[in-house]
Simulated scan of single mutants.
Amino acid sequence: MAKTKAKSTDILSLIAAEHHQVEKLFAEAEKAKGAKLVEQFNQIYIELILHARTEELVLYPALREYEETEQYVEKAEEEHEEVSVILEEIKALKPTQAEFQEKMSELKEILENHVEEESEIFNAVRECMSDRELTGLGQEFQETKAKLVSNVEAALAM
Rank of each mutant, 00 (worst) to 15 (best):
90 I>F: 11
38 V>T: 14
57 L>F: 06
66 Y>G: 00
127 E>F: 06
35 A>M: 06
121 I>G: 00
107 L>W: 07
97 Q>H: 14
70 E>G: 00
95 P>H: 11
66 Y>K: 15
31 K>P: 01
123 N>P: 00
119 S>Q: 14
122 F>I: 04
132 R>E: 15
87 L>N: 04
82 E>I: 07
97 Q>S: 11
24 K>R: 14
82 E>S: 10
109 E>Y: 09
140 E>T: 09
131 D>Q: 15
18 E>R: 02
52 A>W: 03
28 E>L: 12
114 H>Q: 04
51 H>P: 09
32 A>R: 05
77 E>D: 12
57 L>E: 15
20 H>Y: 13
42 N>W: 02
80 H>W: 06
46 I>F: 12
45 Y>I: 02
135 T>L: 10
73 V>K: 08
45 Y>W: 09
98 A>H: 12
36 K>D: 15
61 P>E: 07
118 E>W: 08
138 G>P: 02
137 L>Q: 02
129 M>F: 14
86 I>Q: 05
102 E>A: 15
39 E>N: 10
44 I>F: 09
43 Q>C: 09
44 I>D: 02
44 I>K: 06
25 L>I: 06
127 E>Y: 04
96 T>W: 12
93 L>H: 08
18 E>N: 14
100 F>H: 06
78 E>S: 00
121 I>V: 15
91 K>D: 08
113 N>H: 15
72 Y>A: 09
143 E>H: 03
110 I>V: 13
84 S>T: 14
142 Q>N: 06
19 H>P: 00
113 N>A: 13
84 S>R: 14
21 Q>F: 12
76 A>Q: 08
46 I>S: 09
35 A>Y: 03
69 T>C: 11
30 E>M: 13
76 A>P: 02
36 K>F: 09
82 E>G: 01
97 Q>V: 07
50 L>V: 05
100 F>G: 01
68 E>L: 10
51 H>T: 04
144 T>P: 00
23 E>N: 07
14 L>P: 02
128 C>I: 10
39 E>H: 13
49 I>N: 02
111 L>G: 03
57 L>G: 05
138 G>V: 01
112 E>C: 00
109 E>G: 12
142 Q>Y: 02
64 R>P: 03
119 S>T: 10
111 L>F: 11
50 L>A: 04
52 A>R: 00
133 E>V: 03
110 I>N: 08
136 G>W: 03
86 I>F: 03
89 E>W: 06
